[in-house]
């Protein structure tokens, strides 16, 4: 058990830094959403949609960075859902300063944003920020607009409780 814990720690420590070193956020394309859901199946996952030009996002992003630090048991995924030619650099720099460089970061990589949004949630018209909490059992709770960190903590606690 101790060995497992240690190995997991090493994994947690090396994997994110390796991801960060890999550079720009991953392009989020057609089919990426299903892959993402599949990859995180069984793990409590927070998926945060944001964009570099969105005022409320700039306020929320650092709070999310702290949330990730405080909740190593939650997979934190960010998806930049604005679409622009010059976005990857700005996206990365904002993620870095928010303490989210080591999160699993994506960026809309298909000009047909309507289709990408439709795959995620047909009712979503593109308003950001938006947060989807995917529970261990796959149940998704969507928070429109800026999330209250207290609500995220509460959800995280229920996820931790569910494992015991």
């Amino acid at each position: 058990m101790k060995r497992r814990f240690l190995a997991t720690l090493i994994l947690l420590a090396t994997l994110p830094s390796a991801l960060a070193a890999a550079g720009a956020p991953k392009p989020f394309e057609r089919g990426s959403w299903q892959k993402l859901l599949h990859a995180h199946a069984g793990h409590p996952t927070l998926v945060h949609f944001w964009g570099v030009t969105c005022g409320p996002c700039k306020v929320e992003l650092p709070q999310l960075g702290r949330f990730m630090k405080d909740h190593p048991g939650i997979d934190v995924v960010t998806i930049s859902a604005d679409l622009v030619p010059n976005l990857p650099e700005a996206t990365r720099s904002m993620l870095d300063s928010a303490g989210l460089a080591s999160a699993e970061n994506w960026i809309f990589g298909d000009g047909f944003a309507e289709r990408l949004r439709f795959e995620i949630d047909p009712a979503w018209q593109g308003d950001i920020p938006r947060t989807m909490l995917i529970a261990r059992d796959g149940i998704i709770t969507t928070i429109e607009g800026s999330a209250e960190i207290a609500d995220l903590n509460k959800w995280s606690d229920t996820q931790a409780a569910a494992t015991r």
Partner: peptide
């Protein structure tokens, strides 16, 4: 980790996705 260089290249080619 071994796959990352390839991943990084794949990302580069996708940065021109545009409207």
């Amino acid at each position: 980790l071994a796959a990352f260089p390839k991943l990084a290249r794949a990302q580069m080619s996708h940065q021109h996705a545009s409207e």
